[in-house]
Nucleic acid binder design. Structure first.
Lengths: 204, 204, 204, 204
DNA sequence: CATGAATGAGCATTCATTCAT
DNA sequence: AATGAATGAATGCTCATTCAT
């Protein structure tokens, strides 16, 4: 039943299809993309897709699932936990923005549907937002506890961080040139701004 | 030719249609929405829509245009210019988030397409992002000049502000309960965090 | 009821509409032409047409009727009756081909429908083919009787004449350049060929 | 790529569709005929048609192409070249009228559109009129040269011949009963009339 | 498993016709 | 009588999905 070699072949084919789907979805959007578009991109026949996925929508689910699979335990993040708080924010922004840019194509493919389709929305929110949020919240709470951060509401801080990241991606997708030029230095800028604020410090 | 009464009737009908379209688009997304859906929602016949709009896509353009029409010169913002810098951020966040929530339905209707359709993307970016950005940039630059803000790059600060706002809207649309509960107090929280930072101040 | 001035106004308007219809029908064909096309061409509103004609098809009937109205008793033809037989053919071809070229626009408009619509076909055939045919037949029969023509079957001769004329119009509509260049001299050529034949005569 | 068996299946299906299309077009005309009509007539589904033809108009092109395919090199005609001139005309009329009657259905299907659509008109004229015309012209010119025909302009003679044939078909389509009854003997009648003329000969 | 021809439900759009003004 | 906005039935075409090979 679960011949491991068979399983591997199946997974390879699934990935081949999902790769193709992500590319064309990102290019044309979900609905304007036809199954034939995907099949051509994958170099296979239309019907073959249905041997691996129930239907077109299932491809979105598949893409989403892979997005979260990629979201391995963020080792780098965990390492950041031990360092300086400000540095932690740098690492966080850096990591998240990097991940997003990597998966930007896929994100662009599914975000529109996420906004609309309840099931997708919930899946996306839970696996992609909430999970990270919980982790960050506990970190922030801990640092507040330790006095490394002002007594802020961790949940709100985390929303701020996440909103900023996803917002930046949106602006980026929209072709904002400033972001295009400064994408690399944004993490540090954001961390500084957020941690130290924009208020002029003594001596500036 | 341009009988003002006729013109008013025409505009009224156009708005009636765009209202209906925004509602259904927001609910089901652009492509899954049928012209019939919109016509039913507007209480008119299918064909009538085509007396006022070229095609289905034209409805999106129409919705976008109205979004920017609503974007009158933000008087409140201009008033904020004279006050305290931190207060300016409060006003800014408050104003933008208010506007967004008002137009959330419309935004939800067009955002997905904006991400994909180049023409729409450019229109949206220019009329909805760039215009505000320019204004904010000059304000930030002036305050940096005056020493009211640290010597930051205005363009980046503005991207941060705008990304945060649109990001929050996205999280909100996704049904984030924390945001739902605290939407009203977010502007002040954001302004504080951004201006003063999260670093513990002396005496905290 | 039948106020003669009213009647005249009505007829004028009907003709205005039929003129417009014939022009656009000839240009685009019956089905691709919209009522709006006709209204624009006539410089009136769509609805006005329906005050004068039952429906779109009725316009075809109207055009056809006018075609046959134009087909007044062909005086020239009648005059030809008294002359030489060969000359009669010249006059006949000349008259018919002239009429056709005049009404070519209208003919082009209705011929396609005539080929298909039974009612139209019969109307057209009876009023436009048969009437002339009967007249010509009796002339031919008389000339055969008098020995001015070989003992041919008048009905067949007449079909030959009429087929030639309508066939020439078709070739002409199709853009045949030879016909374009020689249209004027065709009647005499046809009459000669038909009456004297192509067989070399003594001494040629 | 071009598997011959596949190719044969494809052609068979194309012909099946074109057959159906020709039938319904002839019956109802091009525009009133729906794709569904054709599909039903062919006993297939609507969508299948689009696997073989770009669009509805393409079906007309297809029908026209087949008409000209049928127009093989007219062997019979070539044989006529060697015989008596008058006999050549008999063969010519016979051959052309036979062909036309065979393809009458198809002709009726496309002729209306030919009159209107420029592309179709040109295709039809070139492939269906001009080709035959050129051949006939050279024959006539040769016979004039040899003194077998009066010194007539070959181009005009050929137009006369072709116009007569197509005109007869039109009258036939219109339901002329005389033609219906005498269709078989028309070729000889036409050839006689044309070659020998209607002028009474010595001794008649 | 892979294929791709066949399917037919579904939709954007058109346009003849109506009718209130 | 003239208008032209409103109507909604009708249709060409698309495309997700099925299934015989």
């Amino acid at each position: 039943m679960t011949d491991p070699i068979q399983q591997q072949l199946i997974n390879a084919r699934k990935n081949q299809i999902l790769d193709a789907a992500a590319i064309v979805f990102a290019e044309k959007g979900f609905h304007p993309t036809t199954i034939r578009d995907i099949a051509r991109q994958a170099g296979i026949a239309d019907g073959t897709i249905y041997n691996y996925f129930e239907n077109k929508f299932d491809l979105l689910i598949g893409i989403l699932s892979r997005l979260t699979e990629l979201e391995q335990l963020p080792d780098e993040l965990l390492q950041g936990l031990r360092g300086d708080v400000q540095e932690f924010f740098v690492v966080t922004f850096d990591h998240r923005m990097g991940r997003l840019k990597e998966g930007a194509e896929m994100l662009q493919a599914i975000l529109p549907q996420v906004l609309i389709h309840p099931e997708l929305r919930e899946r996306f929110y839970r696996q992609y937002v909430e999970r990270i949020a919980t982790m960050l919240e506990s970190y922030v709470a801990a640092q507040v506890e330790r006095g490394q951060l002002r007594p802020v509401e961790p949940k709100l801080v985390v929303r701020l961080v996440q909103a900023t990241i996803v917002g930046l991606l949106l602006l980026h997708i929209m072709g904002d040139e400033t972001l295009e030029r400064n994408w690399e230095q944004m993490p540090r800028f954001l961390a500084d701004a957020l941690f130290a604020g924009l208020r002029p410090r003594d001596g500036e």
